[in-house]
Design a protein around this nucleic acid. Structure first.
Length: 490
RNA sequence: CGGGGCGUGGCGCAGCCUGGUAGCGCGACGGUUUUGGGUACCGUAGGCCGGAGGUUCGAAUCCUCUCGCCCCGACCA
């Protein structure tokens, strides 16, 4: 967390109670409108019992951890903890899009019907599109996707091949009136999605954009602690020739998938890659699509059977993203053309790319939890570390916790301090449920020897060390996570 | 949209079949107790039983309609 980290360490030891509230200016990696948080002043309505409507583990845990509240079938309020994770995921998506050179914009949720009549999809889309009429009897719709609108923006403002290539994207709420929403945020009617659109002069350029997106998506998911496997898929109503879906393997996934076990050994990691280098991007695509990996829609038994039997796998997967190349499917009917080098007007080649942002919360939890609750990967955790005071009201533990809290804040590490007057067991249970990856436990016994406990949520392993060392250790753990932010040094 | 199920204090449920004036656990609040894995006890507050209509002296309970939610299937980021 450059900037904030090494900047200054004014340790409010002398006055631990007023220390943590002081503003130290924007610190990277923190929730934009976050501030030091104590559970006694937070809004975290955790449930001890399982709500009866939730059938799958991610839905149950999101409800129990006080992250969401259902307002109607497939429509949710995002409570503070859920919103925090949602924002973290959004931030990672933004950063990786920026890294790939894509430009953010924001389009409205409500769109005029006329635009969709142009593409012919106003009739094609059917019941899944939520249609509304305004006071002037104008027909509108709540956007299920945005190909029409982005094409409209493009055609009105871009005329020359010199303005290409161009990739625009947004992270915006969508609405698809599913017949049967289910599984909490995994299959909501209202959902947050990143949708991006590339505009290129030639098919070759557009395929580079396709490959570039594949690379950026691999990075994006890995930063969230997920392995999402690109699989050849079906294009559905979006249409087009080339498409890959990104799937996270999970028993509760809605898609049946078939793959060569070698595919799961591949990692993108923190490779440096030049997104403007078509060959480099293509090489990554080739690497990650070199093994058999398909959904049931495109599964080919004959090809699958050529894989050595011990490597053949079939499983369930959660779809967390999809990329398409669809050529001139929209640009042609909607007149999105540019003047080429030869002076002739040609329709642009396009593709679109989506990441199910709100769905990712469910996917991450499905992939990372245990019987006690959620286990957040460091990249998306709502708070970096939890602080548990075992004897609230005890002068020594209270002041030690306040000092640790201040020290973590100073290093740009977000801490949730469980300062409520509850028993140790209750505090541990709450912390385990909400899944912060690290916990510092401060009790009178340890404090007598100047030690606190640092516990990993994932492994359950606890190590005793001085408060200073615990803070340093947490900072060390998060250093590589913070280093992935982009642009660096912000 | 076909099939199944459910709506009773914030949450989880019982009561419904065999109508008689609403109960349990958790939670909340107040207190005592306790303090290293959801402590124990005492007390308090909180529900026109999803809604409308009907049958009846009387409806959470029976009947009709309606709204909502969940599960399986077909459909989808």
């Amino acid at each position: 967390m450059q900037g904030g980290a090494q900047a200054h360490r004014c340790r409010p030891r002398g006055d631990p109670l007023t220390g943590p509230g002081k503003s130290r200016g924007p610190v990277r990696g923190r929730f934009p409108w976050g501030r030091p948080m104590r559970l006694s002043r937070y809004f975290l309505p955790v449930l001890k019992e399982n709500p009866s409507e939730a059938q799958i583990v991610s839905h149950r845990l999101m409800l129990r951890a006080g992250m969401i509240k259902q307002q109607a079938a497939g429509i949710y309020s995002w409570l503070p903890l859920g919103l925090k994770v949602l924002k973290r995921i959004e931030q990672i998506v933004h950063e990786e899009q920026a890294r790939a050179g894509h430009i953010p914009l924001l389009m409205p949720t409500l769109q005029p019907a006329d635009l969709w009549r142009e593409s012919g999809r106003y009739d094609d889309y059917g019941e899944e599109m939520l249609r509304v009429t305004d006071r002037h009897k104008r027909e509108m719709l709540y956007g299920p996707t945005n190909e029409e609108m982005i094409t409209d923006i493009f055609r009105g403002n871009v005329n020359s091949y010199k303005d290409l290539p161009l990739t625009l994207y947004q992270i915006q709420w969508k609405f698809r009136d599913e017949i049967r929403p289910r599984f909490g945020v995994m299959r909501g009617r209202e959902f947050l999605m990143k949708d991006g659109y590339n505009f290129d002069l030639t098919k070759e350029d557009a395929l580079h954009a396709y490959n570039r997106h594949l690379v950026s998506y691999l990075r994006t998911y890995e930063r969230m602690g997920l392995q999402a496997i690109p699989m050849r898929a079906d294009s559905g109503p979006i249409g087009g020739e080339d498409t890959h879906e990104f799937l996270v393997l999970a028993d509760t996934g809605e898609s049946e998938v078939f793959y060569d076990s070698e595919i799961t050994d591949l990692r993108f990691g923190d490779r440096a890659i030049d997104y403007d280098d078509p060959a480099a991007c293509r090489a990554v695509l080739e690497e990650f699509t070199s093994r058999y990996a398909r959904t049931d829609e495109t599964h080919d038994e004959a090809v699958f059977n050529q894989i050595p039997e011990e490597r053949r796998r079939s499983a369930r997967g959660i779809e967390v993203g999809q990329i398409f190349y669809f050529g001139t499917k929209y640009s042609e009917p909607m007149g999105a053309t540019v003047v080429g080098p030869d002076g002739a007007r040609v329709p642009v080649h396009m593709g679109s790319h989506g990441i199910g942002v709100s769905r990712l919360l469910g996917a991450i939890i499905e992939a990372s939890h245990d019987e006690r609750g959620i286990i957040w990967p460091e990249g998306v955790t709502p708070f970096h570390v939890g602080l548990v005071n075992l004897k609230q009201g005890d002068a020594s533990t209270d002041s030690a916790c306040a000092a640790i809290e201040a020290e973590l804040q100073a290093r740009g590490i977000e801490v949730l301090y469980h300062d409520r007057d509850e028993r140790a067991g209750a505090k541990f249970a709450t912390m385990d449920l909400i899944g912060l990856p690290w916990r510092i436990t401060v009790g009178p016994r340890g404090l007598a020897n100047n030690v606190v406990e640092l516990t990993s949520r994932r492994t359950g392993e606890s190590v005793e060390m001085s408060p200073q060392d615990a803070v340093a250790r947490v900072a060390e753990v998060y250093a590589p996570v913070f280093a992935q932010s982009w642009p660096a040094g912000r």
